[in-house]
C-alpha cells in the first residue's frame, strides 16, 4: 500500500491557483466559543471546514482556552486549562480518541499565561494554549472537516465567575485542485490515564490499548502533573495544572518528603518499557523528561496490544491534591 507523503519545503503558493504543489499554508479557526461549567459544546463546524474546494494536509491542531472577561489572574489563576478543559476530535467516521482528552495531555508544547490578551489595570485575560503537531500530516479530502467537542468539567465552576472561551485552529497546507489523494491516511489516536495522588496505587486497564485491527504507531507519551482539591475543583494552594509546576509539584523524590508519583510500564507481551530500581517503579520525572513533560519514541502496537502502566504515590508530606496524567499519542493508517 503506497501512501502519499507530504513534501516538505519548496516554494510557497505563488502559482496561478495561489497554491503550489507543496501546498499553500492554510489555517482555519472555529472562533471563540463560550463553555459553561459541566457542558460539552461542539465548536463551529462551518468555520472548521476549508473554504477552498481542494484537498489539504493538516499538520497541527492548536487549542486555546481563556477567560471570557477580565478577571484577576491572581485569584482566577490559570486553572482553566490543563485537566479541566477536555477536547475530543474526529473527522468523518474516524475518531481521534475514545473519550475527551485533557488538553494538557495532547502535546509537550503547552503554555499557560496571564498575558494573553492582557487588558489594562490588574485584570488580565488568562489562558492556555496547546500546539499539537500531529504525528503525521493528516490528508483531508475536499469538504472534509475536523469536528471538535470541548468539555469543561464542572469543578472549574468553583472559580466560575468569568466565562470560559475555547477555540481550535488547525494549520496545514492546501493542495492544488485535482490532486490525487493517498490510498491511506494517517489518523491520529490519543488516549489518556490520570493517577490520583490520593490513591497509594492505581493501574491502567485498557486505556492504552490499540483498539484497531491495524498497527497503531505510538510516537509519544505526554506526562504532566496536575492538581485538584478534595471536591474536584482546582486548588490554588497546590498550584494548578499547566501553570508553574516547578514550585508546586514534584515529579522526583525530594529531601522534604513531598509526595510524588512513580510508574512502571510494560507492554502486553510482558516486555519492560520502564524499569526503576530492582525492576520496579521509576519516578515519573525520570520517565517523562521534566523539560518537555514528554517521552518521544517510535513503537508500533499490534492489533489489540497495549501498554500496561502501574502508578504508586510515594512520599508523605502534602501533595494529596495532586494528580499525574499520561497521554499516549500515535496514529493508525486508515483506508481513504
Amino acid at each position: 500500500m503506497k501512501i502519499l507523503q507530504p513534501q516538505w519545503g519548496g516554494k510557497l503558493g505563488l502559482d496561478k491557483t495561489g497554491m503550489a504543489a507543496v501546498g499553500a499554508p492554510v489555517s482555519f479557526s472555529a472562533g471563540a466559543t463560550a463553555i459553561a461549567a459541566g457542558q460539552t459544546v461542539p465548536l463551529n463546524l462551518v468555520n472548521l471546514q476549508s473554504g477552498y474546494r481542494t484537498p489539504y494536509w493538516v499538520d497541527e491542531i492548536r487549542m486555546q482556552v481563556y477567560s471570557g472577561s477580565s478577571v484577576d489572574a491572581g485569584t482566577f489563576g490559570v486553572q482553566a486549562g490543563g485537566y479541566m478543559m477536555q477536547f475530543q476530535f474526529r473527522t468523518g467516521n474516524y475518531a481521534f480518541s475514545k473519550t475527551p482528552i485533557p488538553m494538557a495531555l495532547y502535546a509537550p508544547q503547552y503554555g499557560a499565561s496571564a498575558l494573553i490578551g492582557q487588558e489594562t489595570g490588574s485584570l488580565d485575560i488568562v489562558g492556555h494554549s496547546v500546539r499539537w503537531v500531529l504525528p503525521k500530516p493528516l490528508f483531508m479530502a475536499p469538504g472534509d472537516q475536523i469536528q471538535c467537542n470541548v468539555t469543561r468539567l464542572s469543578g472549574v465552576g468553583a472559580y466560575g465567575g468569568a466565562g470560559f472561551n475555547a477555540d481550535v485552529a488547525y494549520v496545514g497546507r492546501a493542495l492544488p485542485p485535482g490532486t490525487t489523494g493517498p490510498n491511506a491516511r494517517c489518523v491520529p489516536w490519543v488516549a489518556n490515564y490520570i493517577h490520583d495522588f490520593a490513591n497509594a496505587y492505581s493501574e491502567t486497564q485498557a486505556e492504552f490499548r490499540n483498539p484497531f485491527m491495524v498497527p497503531l504507531y505510538v510516537h509519544r507519551f505526554v506526562g504532566r502533573p496536575g492538581s485538584k482539591s478534595s471536591t474536584g475543583a482546582p486548588d490554588l494552594s497546590n498550584g494548578i495544572a499547566g501553570g508553574d509546576f516547578a514550585t508546586q509539584f514534584n515529579m522526583l523524590p525530594t529531601s522534604t518528603g513531598i509526595k510524588y508519583a512513580s510508574v512502571y510500564i510494560e507492554d502486553s507481551l510482558g516486555y519492560k518499557i520502564v524499569a526503576g530500581p530492582s525492576n520496579a517503579y521509576s519516578p515519573v520525572g525520570c520517565v517523562f523528561d521534566t523539560e518537555r513533560c514528554a517521552w518521544t519514541f517510535g513503537r508500533p502496537l499490534g492489533p489489540r496490544e497495549q501498554f500496561n502502566m502501574k502508578f504508586a504515590t510515594n512520599g508523605s508530606a502534602s501533595g494529596t491534591n495532586s494528580v499525574f496524567g499520561v497521554g499516549m499519542v500515535g496514529y493508525r493508517e486508515e483506508a481513504v
Partner: peptide
C-alpha cells in the same frame, strides 16, 4: 519557571 510548559531546570 514562568509561562512554562516544562518543569524548569530540575532536570
Amino acid at each position: 519557571t514562568t509561562v512554562s510548559f516544562a518543569v524548569s531546570d530540575r532536570q
